[in-house]
């Protein structure tokens, strides 16, 4: 028995060391740099400035602007992803043939690199050479829309891209949830007089609650880390209207070289994401949440 524990620890140690070295150490480093000021020349050592970065960040309208933009994207994308994803999941659930092939095709957007997704939608939304304007002009006779350089269309473009990339994933997770509902239970509901949409409302939706929560939390994390799509589609414009948290963090760190303030912002993001993650863990660990 002793040997067993020792063996197990030996097996886990490399991972633990690696995660500490490149997971925990940077975190500590980040907290340390969050209280430093970095001179423009990397040869000069950073200086401890206490809470100055925090105060600066708290005073920074662009920081709050980026949070606000992220929040807007989050609210719209998440609702669309959950509603459309659930609709798609229900559709996939009710077909018998060809599900594997369809799901593979639907998952392509999720499997594509975010940077490529950004490129694709940047091309599609291009005012002159993009497919969307071409479609609008040719079929509806609408004047071309300057999608990516005007508000609110720039934000809409980003939301469309996010929805495009992640809705299939949401749908597949929810489909996995649907398949855990015993067929007998659905049959029983029909026998008991629940019509199609009442089965949905009284049986399916309540039983899917844990799956909605889990996939919702995963999506929150995805959207908080959003960088590539806005970076490529709008480059933050017009003005700073589409600068989301990730884009602003990059700007702080690598355009303004204000590494101290960027670290402070990272600390903020890590804390926010950890809260989301903790919620997720609670959910997953709570066995009663899973449908048996």
């Amino acid at each position: 028995m002793r040997g067993q524990k020792r063996f197990a620890w030996l097996m886990a140690t490399p991972t633990i060391i690696a995660l500490i070295a490149l997971g925990i150490v940077p975190l500590g480093w980040m907290i340390w740099t969050a209280f430093q000021s970095f001179p423009p020349n990397p040869a000069n050592p950073p200086q401890f400035i206490g809470m100055r970065n925090f105060v600066d960040l708290a005073d920074d309208p662009q920081f709050f602007g980026s949070l606000r933009t992220t929040a807007i994207v989050l609210v719209f994308s998440l609702s669309l992803q959950l509603v459309l994803g659930f609709l798609l999941a229900l559709a996939l659930y009710s077909i018998e043939r060809g599900r594997g092939l369809i799901v593979s095709l639907l998952l392509i957007p999720t499997a594509i690199a975010p940077i490529v997704a950004g490129i694709v939608w940047w091309m599609l939304f291009n005012a002159r050479f993009g497919a969307i304007n071409s479609f609008l002009v040719q079929f509806f006779g609408i004047d071309p829309v300057n999608w990516t350089i005007e508000m609110p269309t720039a934000l809409i473009a980003i939301i469309v891209a996010v929805v495009w990339q992640w809705t299939p994933f949401v749908a597949i997770i929810l489909l996995g949830g649907l398949t855990t509902i015993p067929r007998d239970v659905l049959d029983a509901a029909r026998i008991d007089g629940a019509s199609g949409w009442r089965v949905l409302r009284y049986i399916i939706v309540p039983l899917m609650r844990p799956f909605f929560l889990v996939v919702g939390l995963l999506m929150i994390i995805e959207i908080v880390r959003l960088y590539e799509l806005p970076f490529f589609i709008t480059q933050g414009g017009p003005g700073n209207e589409t600068v989301v948290a990730g884009v602003y963090l990059f700007k702080l760190a690598f355009s303004f070289f204000d590494l101290g303030r960027a670290s402070m912002m990272s600390v903020f993001l890590v804390i926010a994401l950890s809260l989301v993650a903790a919620l997720y863990m609670r959910l997953v660990a709570d066995r009663r949440m899973t449908v048996n």
């Binding site: 007998d184 239970v185 049959d187 029983a188 026998i191 008991d192 048996n292």
Partner: peptide, 16 residues
């Protein structure tokens, strides 16, 4: 439902 039939399933099919 319109048939007015009740059914007991092998798995009981209770709503969890």
């Amino acid at each position: 439902f319109e048939r007015g039939i009740a059914m007991v399933f092998q798995s009981y099919a209770l709503y969890p």
